[in-house]
Design a protein around this nucleic acid. Structure first.
Length: 572
RNA sequence: CGGGGCGUAGCUCAGCCUGGUAGAGCGCACGGUUCGGGUCCGUGAGGCCGGAGGUUCAAAUCCUCUCGCCCCGACCA
């Protein structure tokens, strides 16, 4: 492709609304244009990357027996009512009405549609398993789209769904898909890791996320170098935490109330009483869409993992109670809640981190008062013990006990074992060998195509621009004529351009009448892996210059050897 | 949805506080110059100052309301 014929316009200045590097570079390199918040046009140049990734995805999924299909983006409300998600999904679901006032939504995901199709076609265990996928535009009306393609509202996603007669069959496909995903991200030369994940609104039993490691990632994850354990912090568990020393003994046998006027936060309490924050039990009051208050106890130096809590309570939206609710639940203002003497109809859920505390400190459920020397069993007992710990760096690995390392990642893929959540709700059944009807067991497998390309840029760039991993690069070779006004330069560049094309090498030929500086800057910005420069000086000695964007080391090659050298570099 | 910020030329922004004929740089067009890391000089096109209402002799500027966008917290590929 000749640049002078191509639709590629770079910009020198970074647009003010682009925050993260991948977004800035994609806009500067002319790959995407914003149409509205979280909604982008891919230019021919940008689309090439997405197309390349899609091809890799198709190749690897086809290999494991998945079949590509295409489903409608617009979906009738009835299906979503059937699965129960019309109510549950919330505002992220973009709802529409047609001219007859019938309700539809723009699909954020396709469990309902695919389940509807399969339940009509598939009757027998002999037809299972089935694995279907599509690469399609999704729309999720995110409250806050951001970071360009990292979190768009409209985005390109590969979604796959598998149907099985047994859990074992699902396991087999799940592993095949897991491995296919690994091969996809490896093919893209991405530094990624697979973590245990929370399954969120899609639901289901177990799930794994594929995280591309990047400082700008929106997710935090922990890993153990020793055991290989890796999990999203939303899901992560820790081994047994070191036990704190017993707290101070109060006067008498039971807990002792001490006056703590105006002392509310854990740190203040600990300092005021001369104890460690780990010897304090922090009690928080939560509410949810069910409008039922619960008290949650955790060690004073730790945070509650609200995702774990929401899952445990089976609620969607969890919020800390307001002052009035806290007063109602504990009889005290915010800052003095504790597990002792709470009303019996208030659920008290305690994290394991407080289980081993001896003579701990906690709020007295009275204004300006705390208790010291409190013991579980003797003084109070939670209604349930649950793992609610937000795991962080340094916590012991649940498998090896070695300290966990924390890093950030971009979630580029997410695979779930759905079980029968949708097939049960929507009556997607098969007949087994004995002629009995059973709901199919399902798996579901997502991969963010645009996000993966953005993640590749987050990992591959320098101060001057993008450094594409070759499999995702819009072109493999950038051919540049430094002074096309000079006849011999133009002719040689044209000739090499022709030869590259003949060998089906994807070449972008910068034949623009621009000054060398402009061309070099653009070359660095758009980041094509192999660069071939034809300039007058080199040509006088019969030489062209070849370099890789990666290291920019220049190689002087006789013009006759350019093809060989390029092929060699591409073969690496 | 809560908090903060921004809408002026295609892009990045100045002008607004203190109302008085709309500006710069980049980009674009044309001429010249230059020609291995965003040359230099000149000429030119391009804007109902996000929209609506109000105050005023006069509004980009002050007030009200709206719409859009961005950033920070609760959701997800």
């Amino acid at each position: 492709m000749r640049w002078t014929d191509y639709y590629l316009y770079t910009t020198r200045e970074v647009p003010k609304d682009a925050e993260v590097i991948s977004h800035q570079l994609m806009i500067r390199a002319g790959m995407v244009k914003k149409l509205a918040a979280g909604i982008y046009t891919y230019t021919p140049f940008g689309w090439r990357s997405l197309t390349k990734l899609s091809a890799i995805v198709r190749r690897e999924l086809d290999k494991v027996g998945a079949m590509e299909l295409n489903m409608p983006a617009i979906q009738p409300a009835e299906l979503w009512q059937e699965s129960g998600r019309w109510q549950k999904y919330g505002k992220e679901l973009l709802r529409l009405r047609d001219r007859h006032d019938r309700e539809f939504c723009f699909g954020p995901t396709h469990e309902e549609v695919i389940t509807d199709m399969v339940r009509r076609d598939v009757r027998s265990y002999k037809q299972l398993p089935i694995n279907l996928y599509q690469i399609q535009v999704k729309f999720r009306d995110e409250v806050r789209p951001r970071f360009g393609l990292m979190r768009g509202r409209e985005f390109l996603m590969k979604d796959a769904y598998s149907f099985h007669a047994s859990d074992e069959s699902l396991d087999t496909t799940y592993h095949l898909m897991h491995d296919a995903y690994c091969r996809i991200f490896e093919a893209c030369q991405l530094d990624y890791t697979v973590v245990d994940a929370d399954s969120g609104t899609i639901g289901g039993a177990s799930s794994n996320e594929f995280m591309v490691l990047a400082r700008t990632g929106e997710d935090a994850l922990v890993r153990c170098a020793e055991s290989g354990y890796a999990a999203n912090v939303e899901k992560a568990e820790a081994g047994e935490l070191p036990k704190p020393e017993p707290g101070p003994q109060g006067e008498g046998d039971g807990p002792q109330e001490v006056s703590t006027p105006g002392v509310t936060s854990v740190d203040e309490v600990a300092t005021f009483l001369g104890v460690e924050s780990r010897q304090v039990v922090k009690t928080l009051i939560y509410t949810s869409e069910r409008e039922e208050l619960v008290a949650v106890a955790i060690r004073g130096d730790r945070e509650i993992n609200e995702v774990k809590l929401a899952n445990y309570l089976d609620v969607m939206h969890l919020t800390l109670a307001n002052e009035e609710e806290v007063q109602r639940a504990t009889g005290a203002p915010v800052g003095f809640a504790g597990p002792v003497g709470l009303s019996s109809d208030l659920r008290l859920i305690a994290d394991h981190s407080v289980r081993d505390l001896v003579r701990f400190v906690c709020g007295a459920n009275r204004a300006d008062a705390h208790l010291i020397g409190v013991e579980w069993g003797r003084d109070t007992e939670p209604s349930e013990w649950v793992d609610l710990l937000l795991v962080g760096a340094g916590d012991p690995c649940p498998l090896s006990g070695a300290p966990l390392e924390q890093s950030r990642g971009i979630e580029v893929g997410h695979i779930f074992k759905l079980g029968d959540k949708y097939s049960e709700a929507m009556g997607c059944q098969f007949l087994d060998e004995k002629g009995r009807g059973n709901p199919m067991i399902m798996g579901c497998y997502g991969l963010g195509v645009g996000r993966t390309v953005a993640a590749a840029i987050e990992q591959g760039h320098d101060d001057d621009g993008i450094i594409w991993p070759r499999p995702l690069a819009p072109f493999e070779v950038l051919l540049m004529s430094l002074n096309p006004a000079k006849e011999e330069v133009r002719q040689m560049a044209d000739q090499i351009y022709g030869e590259l094309q003949e060998r089906d090498i994807e070449v972008l030929y910068d034949d623009r009448k621009e000054r060398p500086g402009v061309k070099f800057k653009d070359a660095d910005l758009i980041g094509i892996p192999v660069r071939v420069v034809i300039g007058q000086k080199g040509l006088a000695e019969g030489k062209a210059e070849i370099s890789l964007r990666r290291d920019r080391e220049k190689l002087s090659v006789a013009t006759g050897d350019v093809m060989t050298k390029v092929m060699e570099l591409l073969a690496e």
